[in-house]
C-alpha cells in the first residue's frame, strides 16, 4: 500500500534508530573527549560497541546494575565528564526513577540517559520490556529534557545535539528497522518542532516511530482531499508551544500520534497547551491504558491502534468536531 502512495517523504533504506544513536555516539567520542559511556550489559543492543572499542578508557561496563549506573553517571559529571548511559528504556526509567530524580534531575547533573527498545515496536520480547510510560515519567521531572526522534538520521542528529546542551536529557529510541526519511544533514534543534508538511485542515503532531505512520496517513488523506499539516515533535519537553499554537490557530483542530500511553504522553502535553491558550478539538493516537504483548512490530501497531489507518480515522474525527 505504501508503495503506491504519493508520500511527501520517501525512503530507500530502513535502519533501526538505535543504530543512529550508536553511530552518533561514536562520532561524538571523536569530537568531544569529555563524552564517556556507561552500559548495563547491553552494549550490542545499544550499538555502543564501536565507541567502547575506540575509547576503552572512556567506557564503563557496569553489569546488570542500572541504579548504580545512574549514580556513577551523576558522579562522573563532577570533573566535567558528559556521561551517556545505555540500557533499555524500561530499565532507563521505571527501574531507576528515584536515582534519576534525586541524583540527576534534582541535582542538575549533565547526564544523557539513552534509552533503546522503547514502545510496542520492541516486538517479540513482550510487555515486560515494552515500556509505554517512560516519556510521561521523564517529562514530569523538573530539569529534564525529553527527546524522541523518528528515524536513524534524526536519532543520530539528536545524539550529537544533546552533548552540546548542559543538563539532564532523556533520549528515547527503538529496536525495529524503520524507514529513513529525514535528511542526513539535518540540524537538530532541541525544543524546536519541525513542520514537515504545510496544511490547513488539521494539525497532526507526531513523535518517534509514528512520524513515519503520519507521513503515510497524510498521503492517504490528501487523496481524499484533506489537507494535513504534519509537525514532527522530536522534543517532548520542552514542548514547542509556539509551533503548536500557531498551527492549531490556522487549522482549528489537532491529532497527536505517539508510541506511548495516552496518559502522560505527548497528547497530554499538547492538550494542556491548547486548553490554556486556544481550546480546540483534539484526537489522540496512542496506547489506551493497556500493556503490550509479544508480536511483530507492525502487527502490534495495528492491534493497538497506532498505525497510519488509525491516524486517518483520528484526523477525520477531529475535523468533524470543529
Amino acid at each position: 500500500m505504501e508503495k503506491t502512495l504519493d508520500t511527501k517523504y520517501t525512503y530507500t533504506e530502513k535502519k533501526d534508530t538505535r543504530s543512529g544513536f550508536g553511530d552518533g555516539f561514536l562520532e561524538l567520542g571523536r569530537k568531544n573527549e569529555n563524552v564517556v559511556g556507561l552500559c548495563a550489559d547491553l552494549i550490542g543492543s545499544l550499538k555502543m560497541g564501536a565507541f567502547q572499542k575506540e575509547f576503552p578508557d572512556r567506557f564503563f561496563q557496569v553489569g546488570i546494575s542500572e541504579a548504580n549506573m545512574m549514580g556513577l553517571a551523576a558522579g562522573m559529571t563532577i570533573g566535567g565528564k558528559i556521561p551517556f548511559t545505555g540500557t533499555f528504556a524500561n530499565f532507563s526509567t521505571g527501574r531507576v526513577y528515584d536515582q534519576i530524580r534525586q541524583s540527576i534531575a534534582y541535582s542538575e547533573k549533565n547526564v544523557k540517559i539513552c534509552a533503546s527498545h522503547a514502545g510496542l515496536t520492541l516486538g517479540e520480547d513482550g510487555a515486560t520490556h515494552q515500556i509505554l510510560e517512560d516519556m510521561g515519567m521523564m517529562k514530569m521531572l523538573p530539569n529534564m529534557t525529553v527527546i524522541n526522534p523518528c528515524d536513524y538520521n534524526q536519532t543520530k542528529a539528536a545524539t550529537l545535539a544533546i552533548a552540546d546542551y548542559e543538563g539532564p536529557v532523556y533520549l528515547r529510541f527503538g529496536r525495529p528497522s524503520w524507514p529513513i526519511f529525514t535528511p542526513a544533514d539535518q540540524k537538530f534543534e532541541i525544543g524546536k518542532a519541525w513542520k514537515m508538511i504545510e496544511g490547513k485542515d488539521v494539525s497532526l503532531f507526531a513523535t518517534g516511530h509514528l512520524v513515519w505512520e503520519a507521513v503515510v496517513a497524510e498521503a492517504m488523506l490528501r487523496e481524499e482531499g484533506i489537507s494535513v499539516e504534519l509537525i514532527n515533535i522530536h522534543t517532548i519537553k520542552p514542548l514547542d508551544t509556539e509551533a503548536v499554537l500557531a498551527s492549531v490557530a490556522k487549522t482549528g483542530c489537532a491529532v497527536t500520534a505517539e508510541e506511548h500511553q495516552l496518559n502522560g504522553g505527548l497528547g497530554d502535553s499538547i492538550a494542556q497547551t491548547l486548553i490554556r491558550n486556544n481550546p480546540a478539538p483534539q484526537e489522540f493516537v496512542g496506547v489506551d491504558d493497556s500493556f503490550g504483548e509479544s508480536g511483530k512490530p507492525v502487527d502490534l501497531l495495528e492491534k493497538y491502534g497506532l498505525n497510519a489507518a488509525n491516524i486517518v480515522k483520528a484526523v477525520k474525527k477531529a475535523i468533524s468536531r470543529k
Binding site: I78, K81, S107
Partner: peptide, 21 residues
C-alpha cells in the same frame, strides 16, 4: 555536590566522581 536523602545512592555517585578524577 549532589542531593542525598533517599538512601543508597551516594556510594555510586562517589564512585563516579572517583572514576572522573
Amino acid at each position: 555536590r549532589v542531593a542525598s536523602g533517599s538512601l543508597g545512592q551516594g556510594l555510586s555517585v562517589a564512585i563516579g566522581a572517583a572514576l572522573s578524577k
